[in-house]
C-alpha cells in the first residue's frame, strides 16, 4: 500500500491526478527516496512513542512536494531524518544514490521557527552557511545577494532580525536555506506563525523563488490550501504513527495565483479530498 504511494507519483497521468496510483508506469530514479522509515522516541515517562511507522516518500529532481497531516503525526520527525539530524530506527533513505547518514551540503533546511540568529544581521545570517561547515564557499556570495533580491530583502542586509517583520524573517530564513545552492530544500511549516494574508503573499513569493531556483522542495504545512497551491504533489499523512495515507498529484498550471487557483475545480476537488481524509 505504502510502496504504491512511493512509486506511483512520478507519472503525471490523469489517473494519478485522480488519486489512483499506477505502479506499472516506469519512473525515472527519484532524487530522494525513503522506504520503510520507522522512528521511535523513548520518553522520560516510560512508554516509547512511535513517531513514524513504515513511512515512504520519494521525490523527483526539481519537484515540489507538500506534506500535510494531523499535528504530532511525525512530519517534523520525517524532515529531521531527511536532513540527517536524526537517524531512523529502521528503513533506508537515499539522496541521489547515496544513503543519508548525516547532514549534507546538498540539503538546505528551513526550520519551523525562523531561527535567524538575533545577534547577526540579515546578511550575516544568510551567509552563515557559507562560513561554517568547512570548504570555501565565498564565491557564492553573489548568488546569495541575488536570492535576497528575489526575496525582496535588498536594502535590509544590515538590519537585525528584530527590525524585520515576521514575513521578512521567514524569507531571510529561506534565503539562508538556499545559500549553499542545495539540491534539496526541506521546509518545516515556514509560514505557520504568519497571518493568513501575509501567508498567501509568502506562498506567492516562495513559488517565485522556487521557479527561479528549481530546487527539489519538501514543504511541511498545516494548511491544505498552501499545500495544494505550492505543491506538484500533496502527501497526506495519517495520525501517529505517521505513514502515507495518500499521495495526490496537483494538476494546476504555473505560475499559480491565489485568486485563480482557489476557484479552480481541481483545487476545490483536492482540497475536499484532503480535508475528508484528515477529518476521518
Amino acid at each position: 500500500m505504502s510502496l504504491t504511494a512511493t512509486l506511483g507519483h512520478t507519472a503525471a497521468t490523469a489517473q494519478v491526478a485522480a488519486g489512483q496510483h499506477d505502479p506499472a508506469i516506469p519512473t525515472s530514479a527519484p532524487l530522494i527516496r525513503a522506504r520503510g522509515l520507522v522512528k521511535v522516541y523513548s520518553t522520560v515517562s516510560g512508554d516509547p512513542v512511535v513517531a513514524l511507522d513504515d513511512m515512504n516518500l520519494s521525490m523527483a529532481d526539481g519537484e515540489f512536494v507538500s506534506i500535510v497531516g494531523p499535528s504530532g503525526c511525525g512530519k517534523s520527525t520525517m524532515l529531521r531524518l531527511l536532513a540527517g539530524l536524526d537517524t531512523p530506527d529502521a528503513g533506508e533513505m537515499t539522496l541521489g544514490h547515496q544513503p543519508i547518514t548525516g547532514p549534507s551540503g546538498a540539503v538546505g533546511v528551513v526550520f519551523q521557527n525562523a531561527t535567524l540568529l538575533p545577534w547577526m544581521t540579515v546578511w550575516q545570517n544568510v551567509i552563515l552557511p557559507l562560513q561554517v561547515g568547512g570548504g570555501n564557499r565565498a564565491a557564492r556570495e553573489d548568488a546569495v545577494r541575488e536570492y535576497l533580491s528575489i526575496a525582496g530583502l535588498t536594502g535590509f542586509e544590515n538590519k537585525y532580525p528584530y527590525e524585520l517583520s515576521g514575513g521578512m524573517q521567514q524569507r531571510a530564513a529561506i534565503v539562508r536555506g538556499l545559500a549553499r545552492d542545495p539540491k534539496v530544500l526541506l521546509m518545516d511549516e515556514p509560514f505557520g506563525a504568519l497571518d493568513a494574508l501575509t501567508r498567501e503573499r509568502m506562498n506567492g513569493e516562495l513559488q517565485r523563488i522556487w521557479m527561479a531556483s528549481r530546487k527539489t522542495v519538501l514543504l511541511i504545512t498545516h494548511s491544505i490550501g498552501e499545500a495544494i497551491f505550492l505543491g506538484d504533489r500533496v502527501v497526506v499523512m495519517s495520525g501517529r504513527p505517521g505513514k502515507v495515507l495518500e499521495d495526490l498529484r496537483v494538476n494546476l498550471p504555473r505560475p499559480r495565483s491565489h485568486a485563480e487557483t482557489i476557484a479552480d475545480p481541481e483545487y476545490i476537488r483536492l482540497a475536499r479530498e484532503i480535508r475528508r481524509m484528515l477529518d476521518a
Binding site: R80, A83, G84, L85, G102, P103, S104, G105, V107, V109, F111, Q112, N113, T115, L117, W119, M120, L128, P129, V132, G133, G134
Partner: peptide
C-alpha cells in the same frame, strides 16, 4: 535553544563554530 543547535548541525558546523557563533551569544 535546540533548534539553533539543529541549524548548526544541519550546516555541519564544527564544535568551535557552534560555540562561538551560537552558544556564546
Amino acid at each position: 535553544e535546540p533548534e539553533r543547535l539543529d541549524l548548526m548541525k544541519a550546516l555541519s558546523a564544527s564544535r568551535l563554530q557552534t560555540y562561538l557563533r551560537v552558544k556564546l551569544p
